[in-house]
Design a protein around this nucleic acid. Structure first.
Lengths: 186, 186
DNA sequence: CGCCGAGTTGAACTGAATCAAGAAACGTGG
DNA sequence: CCACGTTTCTTGATTCAGTTCAACTCGGCG
């Protein structure tokens, strides 16, 4: 798994990797299971080995999806994890899942005992951040239809697996509007 | 400046801080000066000591503002800096500015010679990321009017300094729409 | 079989975009 | 310090993408 998480440019010795990886615990979730509930503090930094998750928050009884999480990505309410504050988001397994996670306290130990912690921490959040930048870019400059077509291209597997309504809110529109876009395109 | 950049929770020795700070170079910009042009690679990680900057990209001849950068924040086209790729964004000084910046190559040296580099790197990007999460949250769940009122509350100084049209595109609307919102609120 | 959630479709409505024109503010040179 | 041109802001009319509310279909499942 190491090579997926870490930028190819920066070599990490196996010993150093073990310091981090050794703290990780394997965990399984069933389809539709809740991994983290809104209001709870996220104590774990979790990486996906198998399956897809979604992260959403609730606004006026509607679930607004902010992110889908795929293989080898981190699935976390990262601000909750960092700031030790109640999560605004819920994290849910969309398929059966296998993840590896490390507890906040254990991660602090890694940070203290080896430089590898900060390196891995920095590289992973840099990744997530660049993802988020792309999403901001597309929200500011593209129409819902363009965002839909891009998502289709980048993650066609999503459409086989999950309800369209989640995709709709991820795109920032209602399920009805998505339905009409799909009809229009055909 | 140290205490502003680094989370209060994590102490950093003065020697370690110097390793990083010693690589930083002071630089001044005049109001309206371009700090980084679209298409260029951002070679510097820059922190604001004085003044305000904005980051924007161009879509169909319109400048869309993605971020305002205030004192003690990092002003960078961070994905360009990280990935050594041409920046999609332009960075412009909105007032006279003083910044401190460290060159990419020098930062790599810091990363190699001292754990402080990755720590500072991790903490700063964590900050920027949490900021971006908040913005995403507000874009998905609030109206343009709500976003305007929030910005008013958090950064009233902006409104004295910069053209409203930049604020409009930052809020994700046209200058005309902002004008109408302001009229409505009054 | 009947129920329920997901998806589609229609009609009315709304916030914001667009196009266009005029008013106010700004800054630069004479 | 004023005059002029440019930029910024406002206002109006029209259009459009997407919302809301409501009704209906379809497929899976107890």
């Amino acid at each position: 798994m190491k090579q997926y998480l870490i930028s190819k440019k920066i070599p990490i010795s196996d010993e150093n990797w073990q310091i981090f990886a050794g703290k990780n615990i394997r965990k399984e979730y069933k389809k539709n299971e809740i991994i983290l509930k809104e209001g709870e503090i996220d104590h774990y930094l979790s990486i996906v080995e198998e399956g897809i998750a979604r992260i959403f928050f609730v606004k006026e009884n509607k679930e607004l999806t902010t992110r889908f999480v795929f293989r080898y990505q981190y699935v976390t309410s990262y601000d909750s994890f960092l700031e030790r504050s109640p999560s605004r988001c819920t994290v849910q397994a969309l398929t059966d899942m296998v993840i590896w996670h490390v507890h906040y306290d254990d991660l602090q130990v890694v940070y203290k005992t080896s430089p590898i912690g900060n390196l891995i921490g920095r590289l992973t959040i840099e990744n997530i951040y660049v993802e988020k930048l792309k999403k901001e870019f597309s929200f500011m400059s593209e129409s819902a239809e363009e965002r839909y077509l891009n998502l289709m291209k980048e993650h066609p597997e999503l459409f086989q697996i999950i309800p369209l309504k989640h995709i709709a809110t991820y795109l920032g529109i209602t399920p009805q509007a998505l339905s009409r876009i799909r009809k229009r395109i055909c």
